Amino acid sequence: MTTGRPVGYSAISSYSRVEILHLVQEQPRRTITEIVEATGLHPNTVREHLQRLIDEGYVVSAAEHRTTRGRPRVLYSAADGILASSPIQRRKVRAAAERGDLMRRVLPGAAPELDTEALHQVDALVEDLIDAGFDPLVDERELTVDLTPCAHASSQAEHREVLCRVHLGLMQSVLSAAGGPLAVDDMRPSCDPRECVVQLMFAGATA
C-alpha cells in the first residue's frame, strides 16, 4: 500500500523534530529550556517543532504542579499510549480501526490470522507508518512489518540509529494506544541499511 506522499510530508521527516522526539522519549516531562540546551535550537524553533509533534499526536504537554509561587512550566513527554496519552493519537487509532473493519467487510478474503483487537492494532500501525512516509507490508502469521526500502535510509543515513529507535518507539506507542495483545519486539538485524523488518510479538511473550 502506498500513498505517493513524499517523505517530506511527515511530521518526523525533519531531523530536528526527530531529535526532539528522541529526547522526550528517553526522558519524559522535559522543559523547553532543557530541549534548547540539548539541541542548540532557538526556543521559538523548539516551540514550533513541539507544536507540530503535538498536532500529530506524537507528543503531549502538561503544566508542572508547583507548590511555590511562579508560573508553572510546561512539560513535554512523548505520547506512549498509556501514561502519556494523546487525544489526537486516540482519535487516529479509532478511525484506523473503523476503516480497517470497513475494508474487511467490503473486500473479504482469507480468514485473518489475528483476533479483532490485534487487527485494530495493525490497522492503526499501518496508517501511522504510511503517514510517516513508509510503505509497510505486514505478515500476520510471522508478526513482521517490512518497511523495506527504508524511506529514511538515504536522506538521513548519518542519523540511522536515532531514527530507528524513534520509529520503534512510535510504533510501540501506536500499538499501546490501540490496545491489544501486540507489542514491538525489535528490528531484525541486517547489513543493508535500506532493509528494515520490524518483529512484533504478543505482549508478555518471550522474545
Rank of each mutant, 00 (worst) to 15 (best):
M1N: 03
T2D: 04
P6G: 02
V7E: 09
G8Y: 12
G8K: 11
Y9L: 12
A11G: 13
A11V: 13
S13L: 05
S14Q: 13
S16P: 10
S16K: 15
V18D: 09
L21A: 11
V24M: 04
E26Y: 12
E26F: 08
R29G: 07
R30S: 15
I32Y: 10
A38R: 07
A38N: 10
G40P: 06
R47Q: 15
E48C: 15
I54G: 12
Y58R: 12
A62N: 12
T68R: 14
R69I: 14
V74A: 12
S77T: 09
A78V: 03
D80F: 00
G81R: 00
I82G: 05
L83Q: 14
S85N: 06
R91W: 07
A96N: 05
A96C: 12
E98S: 11
R99S: 03
R99V: 03
G100W: 02
L102E: 10
M103A: 09
M103P: 03
R104A: 11
R105G: 02
R105F: 11
V106A: 12
G109F: 01
P112I: 03
P112Q: 09
E113M: 07
L125W: 03
I130D: 04
A132V: 01
F134T: 02
D135V: 08
V138D: 11
V138M: 04
E142G: 05
L147Y: 08
A151Q: 04
Q156N: 11
A157E: 11
A157H: 11
E158W: 07
E158P: 13
H159Q: 12
V162R: 15
C164Y: 10
H167Q: 14
V174I: 01
L175I: 09
A177Y: 00
A178I: 00
G179P: 06
G180V: 07
L182F: 00
A183V: 09
R188K: 15
P189K: 08
D192K: 05
E195A: 14
E195M: 14
V198I: 15
V198C: 01
V198S: 01
L200M: 06
A203Q: 08
T206L: 15
